[in-house]
């Protein structure tokens, strides 16, 4: 009974972790950007979804849709205002681009965080659920919303896989992640590939933000923790590896759930952090990462 409970509970939270970290790994894979404003993009989507969703005329579905749109807009703004100028800047030496992108997105995330806190206050809110009620799975009372979250997460993962592996645009993304110079030589505009990548990133982050907000609640105060969790999962799985990210999300999700059930809820985060340190020490490229 307890085992089943842990399996079901861990599955949903892990799926959500995977989806939350997916965009982060995608954008790193394609353009080498570690977007430290990631948590801010998630929370912006969730906040907009909540704000529109609580408006009686709109409803939950319209709320979710506007949340995703907000995610895409925030993503493009991040790219256009912060990332692209740094990548284009002649004043920044090549070797230091990475640090400038990190600092720039960090600052941008701070701006979004304070701005959201100012508009919506830092008190957490919950995004309206698309479905309510509970379902009994082999004696475990499970909220229907939790099942829906797992299903949507996996659908999104599957769609992304299809997009990357089965469409020409997706293949260009893949190629850009492996050898950007070769792609330019073939006459493909890298700019367009990047725009596509940030567009997909915005959609994924938007969906993840809305789902996170409906399951765990949302607040501008959660932004640093969300960025941190996504960062950890992605590094654990291997930077840029989508499969690695999913595996890492499940490892972290289940370790946390096991700890919460079997040891103590107050120690929930600790074992996963220690595991992360160990993995980084003994296998720095992560579970499935390329060196």
């Amino acid at each position: 009974m307890l085992i089943l409970q842990i399996l079901i509970d861990g599955f949903a939270i892990s799926a959500l972790y995977a989806l939350g970290a997916l965009g982060f790994t995608l954008i790193f894979g394609v353009s080498g950007v570690l977007n430290l404003a990631h948590g801010a993009v998630l929370v912006t989507s969730a906040m907009v979804a909540w704000y529109v969703g609580t408006n009686e005329a709109a409803g939950a579905l319209a709320g979710a849709a506007s949340g995703i749109v907000a995610g895409v807009i925030t993503s493009f703004v991040t790219y256009a205002v912060v990332v692209r100028p740094i990548q284009r800047s002649k004043a920044i030496p090549e070797v230091e681009r990475e640090l400038f992108v990190l600092t720039g997105t960090l600052l941008w995330g701070v701006m979004l965080q304070i701005g959201l806190g100012y508009i919506f206050t830092t008190t957490p809110v919950t995004v309206h659920q698309l479905v309510s009620g509970t379902v009994n799975i082999l004696g475990v009372r499970t909220p229907t919303n939790e099942i829906l979250i797992a299903v949507i997460s996996w659908l999104t993962l599957g769609l992304l896989w299809l997009l990357v592996n089965r469409t020409p645009a997706g293949k260009r993304l893949l190629a850009a992640s492996i050898n950007p110079r070769g792609l330019t030589l073939m006459g493909v505009e890298l700019d367009q590939v990047h725009l596509l990548a940030w567009g997909i990133y915005g959609v994924i982050a938007g969906i993840a933000g809305v789902l996170l907000g409906s399951f765990l609640g949302t607040s501008s105060a959660y932004i640093p923790a969300l960025t941190g969790t996504a960062f950890s999962i992605v590094v654990l799985g291997g930077l840029g590896s989508v499969t690695g990210t999913v595996i890492a999300a499940y490892v972290v999700g289940y370790i946390e759930t096991l700890t919460a059930y079997l040891i103590s809820p107050s120690l929930r985060a600790v074992p996963a952090l220690i595991l992360l340190v160990l993995v980084l020490y003994f296998r720095p490229q992560g579970i499935l990462g390329r060196r």
């Binding site: 409970q5 509970d9 939270i13 399951f215 765990l216 923790a225 946390e256 759930t257 919460a260 059930y261 103590s264 809820p265 107050s266 120690l267 929930r268 985060a269």
Partner: peptide, 17 residues
């Protein structure tokens, strides 16, 4: 008496317990 970390996101284990 159950105590949980203030940054707990998923409260299912706590309520189950």
């Amino acid at each position: 008496e159950i105590r949980f970390s203030p940054d707990t996101a998923d409260f299912t284990p706590i309520f189950q317990q």
